[in-house]
Write a protein that binds this DNA or RNA. Structure first.
Lengths: 357, 357
DNA sequence: GTGAAAGCGCTAACAT
DNA sequence: ATGTTAGCGCTTTCAC
């Protein structure tokens, strides 16, 4: 393949045209696979393309077309495994269909989320995959509606009256966690979480509570929730355990509805010198690679990232291609991995080390 | 702010022009801050903009300008905290200067890396931040050179003859780790890592080895390296420890040059029932949030993500603005966090639990 | 089959 | 101070 000289103007479609002795329109036709071009000419175009190292400018191309082949993705953050994998998956899927994914992170701010969305609208993106900071009622989704943008909502959302949604089946997964914990004999459990505004977090809480109480009506469920920020949660949790310890009625297990909650809980256990599962059991929503190499390994709910991503893209492209109909709401099943951080309450009470179970 | 009707064609600059009773050129001037416009007309333009909810189409705008205000970022992956934070930082910095960041992940493949770069070239990006999969000699960097693209190389690179580079000061950090480990009394240390092709990984190894041997000439340093993939490393490590255990001369500490190596090492320790720091000490290059909540907390080298990102962007924009001169090579200092996973060898030999130190 | 012409939405010269 | 003209690189009628 011929390499052009450095720092030279890139060849345009006209350069190819003159090299091939045809018009720009013909070049465009050849490159877009129109079959009505004389084979001989087509070959000459291809040769010229090869010779010059010509490549279509996708932006100029989109300029003239109706819709631009760009998909926007907005995630609350890029730092966690979950959203990192999500972006990675979405990128691959967009690419497969000849689209480019432009990703941006709202950094857990609804204001920023809306700003990004406005910028994507400026870009005339064909569609948007939005993982909203809070839920489907934020200003960002409102903006999308008001401007007739096409998009899918994922993750912190269960259903919407304007957009298709795809998320993990939080309630079912939480019910499974409840069954496991009740089965181990736990009758006093703390649920911690961030972002009670998110429909999914509420679903996680309710799914857990309903099943747990159904299986064990004498169950005591404490809840420590706070909106969005980690530091307040840390304080709340500390106070909670101090009070419970004073009253000598601390829970035997913790279920965290959010990855960050799991980290905060672990950190608090450390501070108090508690080890899982002897002193307390722990299950977290959201899995991470490290959870299986620590001692004990941390039990977790694994969200089906690939499934969420591929379903989101599928439904998005259907809309982009003009398919009508009412918004759909998909729930993808999770896997619950019961690892060493969960045991029976009081089985080896208050022992020191984080021994193997 | 006036909201336009859903599904309506977005207003163009001509719509604004006719509403304001001026020409499109004048609108453009007002919006780009040219001051030679009569204040009264400027106001009418602004009013029309407000009324119609007009926003400039950045692509059409870039089309006519010389350079496009797009920065490309290529990371080996999005799943790890390090690269996630990096993208997040870069995104913010690009945005600050009115540029849009388009990020893509090479998924640890040099072929994909080059393809992405070609696509970004098609997009006529103003510049690229490339975190190469292996090192500065890969096909991607070659492509950038051959096509006269402007860019910065970060992370797995120390210096280059064509591009500016910014990375963590691996050698200095490793030297510090060596001092700490030698100081604790370790005289037999295993270094594990992936990607020995990366200049940085070699720098990490050499920085460690040189300092360690200087401080303790009787030091024994074993090395288990393998290229790029995790699974072979797992096998290698297993075999290594089996052999060492049979010979009864296993190392008292492990230094991992890569996050994934740290995970593999921990996993192997688990398998063997070893606890840090009693059975073996562990330090890893690359910090992660979970490392401070596990028991024991894992000692780690913290890379200065923000500094790398901001220096990379700074130097990139200087090149974009046409600044000449030979390529620069920046090295940003790391912080070394000595946590509980490091102790003195044999201090509490072969005890069971992962007790607090 | 093919090319000329007309833009997509914008901005930079150049007139006025 | 403002409008006119001429594109950026491409695609798409629509004649020929």
């Amino acid at each position: 393949m011929a390499q052009q000289e450095s720092h030279q103007r890139r060849p345009s479609i006209h350069d190819v045209a003159s090299h091939a002795g045809v018009s720009a329109a013909t070049v465009s036709k050849v490159l877009s696979g129109v079959t009505t071009v004389k084979p001989e000419n087509a070959q000459r175009v291809l040769d010229a393309v090869e010779l010059l190292g010509y490549r279509v400018d996708p932006l100029a191309s989109d300029m003239r077309r109706a819709k631009r082949r760009i998909i926007g993705a907005i995630m609350p953050e890029f730092e966690s495994e979950f959203f990192g994998q999500m972006v990675s998956e979405l990128e691959g899927l967009a690419e497969q269909r000849g689209y480019t994914l432009v990703a941006a992170s709202s950094r857990e701010s609804e204001a920023r989320e809306k700003e990004i969305l406005a910028r994507m609208h400026d870009w005339r993106v064909a569609g948007v995959v939005l993982a909203p900071v809070r839920n489907e009622h934020g200003p960002a989704a409102g903006f999308m509606k008001a401007n007739g943008m096409t998009g899918v909502l994922i993750d912190r959302v269960l259903a919407d009256d304007a957009f298709d949604t795809v998320s993990a089946d939080s309630a079912a997964a939480s019910a499974e966690v409840a069954r496991a914990l009740v089965g181990e004999g736990h009758r006093h459990i703390l649920v911690v979480g961030l972002g009670q505004q998110a429909a999914t977090v509420r679903a996680r809480l309710e799914g857990f509570r309903n099943t747990a109480l159904e299986l064990a009506p004498d169950m005591r469920i404490d809840v420590v929730l706070c909106e969005s920020d980690v530091e307040p949660l840390r304080t709340l949790l500390r106070d909670y355990f101090s009070k419970r310890e004073a009253g000598n009625d601390r829970p035997t297990a913790v279920y965290s509805l959010f990855l960050k909650g799991t980290l905060v809980a672990l950190s608090e256990f450390r501070r108090r010198g508690w080890h899982c599962p002897n002193d307390i059991s722990l299950v977290g929503f959201d899995d991470a690679e490290w959870m299986q190499v620590t001692w004990p390994a941390i039990a977790a709910v694994v969200q089906p990232v690939r499934e969420i991503a591929s379903n989101a893209m599928e439904v998005l492209f259907r809309r982009i291609e003009g398919e009508g109909g009412p918004p759909t709401a998909r729930l993808e099943p999770c896997k619950v991995l019961m690892r060493e951080s969960v045991g029976s309450p009081g089985s080896v009470p208050h022992s020191g080390g984080g021994d193997r179970q």
